[in-house]
């Protein structure tokens, strides 16, 4: 069952919030085993919703997958509870970091091991592994997570997810609100986790340039639909992506005013 076929297959899902608001209008995507896949798009395109539909955190926000399926290693995830999804090896690192502010850094990390119901020694090993990747967290292990810097909080959030020994991490805007240098540092660590620990990554990002440098494949979401997908290299060279997402147009930089008057081509037939 495992081995061949993609690790994650999202098949034509539709998501409705509060029974009335249609947010995703048929999204399909795949993440290969060991891959890094970028999910790109502007504000409100549906990136976070897609990730939450996979991790099943939607229900906690009164959202619902009304059509389509989510399969992980051939098993359907869309009928499981969030903690069951985590136990299968899929974990989401939420947008805005969401650390437990009144817990110490180490306690934050340890909560990530809870779902796995692991013994003390294996949790200890996992903790050492997280500190190996994020040495600055080891120095701050006794600090309250509410008082550490934004970059360190993002590291706590990723480290905490790592404690569950995930096969697939869903990263939601890890670059949000961080200095460019820190963003590079965090993405470098994500690359290492992917290469050394074999963690596959589905990455939702607004920073298209950054995401396409680290991902191998990319999907572009607009208004709840996938409008374009392809290998990262091809997307970077696509004229529309250059124009709308990378802010480049042919030889010259397009000014905001010109961009505003330009009516976007619709890429889907609907």
């Amino acid at each position: 069952m495992a081995g061949d076929g993609p690790l994650l297959r999202v098949n034509n899902i539709e998501v409705i919030y509060d029974h009335v608001i249609l947010v995703l209008k048929g999204v399909s995507l795949e993440v290969a085993r060991g891959g890094i896949v970028a999910l790109l798009g502007g504000n409100g395109a549906g990136k976070s919703t897609t990730l939450k539909a996979i991790s099943n955190l939607l229900k906690a926000e009164r959202g619902q997958v009304t059509k389509g399926t989510v399969e992980f290693e051939g098993e359907r995830l869309d009928r499981l509870m969030p903690h069951q999804v985590v136990r299968r090896g899929v974990i989401q690192v939420m947008e805005g970091r969401h650390c437990f502010e009144h817990l110490t850094v180490e306690d934050n990390l340890l909560t990530g091991a809870f779902a796995r119901r692991a013994g003390r020694t294996s949790v200890g090993e996992d903790l050492d592994r997280v500190y190996h990747y994020f040495p600055s967290l080891k120095r701050r292990r006794r600090s309250l997570a509410g008082y550490i810097s934004g970059g360190e909080q993002q590291m706590v959030a990723i480290g905490r997810a790592l404690m569950s020994r995930p096969k697939l991490m869903l990263l939601d805007e890890p670059s949000m609100g961080l200095a460019p240098q820190l963003v590079e540092e965090i993405f470098a660590i994500v690359d290492r986790l992917n290469a050394e620990q074999g963690v596959s990554v589905l990455l939702a990002e607004q920073n298209t340039n950054l995401a396409l440098r680290h991902a191998r494949y990319g999907y572009i979401l607009e208004n709840g639909r996938i409008v374009l997908d392809g290998p990262a290299q091809a997307l970077r060279e696509n004229a529309d992506v250059k124009e709308f997402y990378l802010g480049l147009a042919g030889e010259r930089r397009l000014s905001y005013r010109e961009g505003k008057h330009y009516k976007r081509r619709k890429r889907w037939l609907a």
Binding site: S55, A60, V93, T111, F114, R116, M163
Partner: peptide, 14 residues
């Protein structure tokens, strides 16, 4: 204690 701090985050870590 974690749940007390942030329900959503607790849910997300399983």
């Amino acid at each position: 204690r974690a749940v007390a701090d942030d329900h959503q985050a607790a849910l997300s870590v399983g």
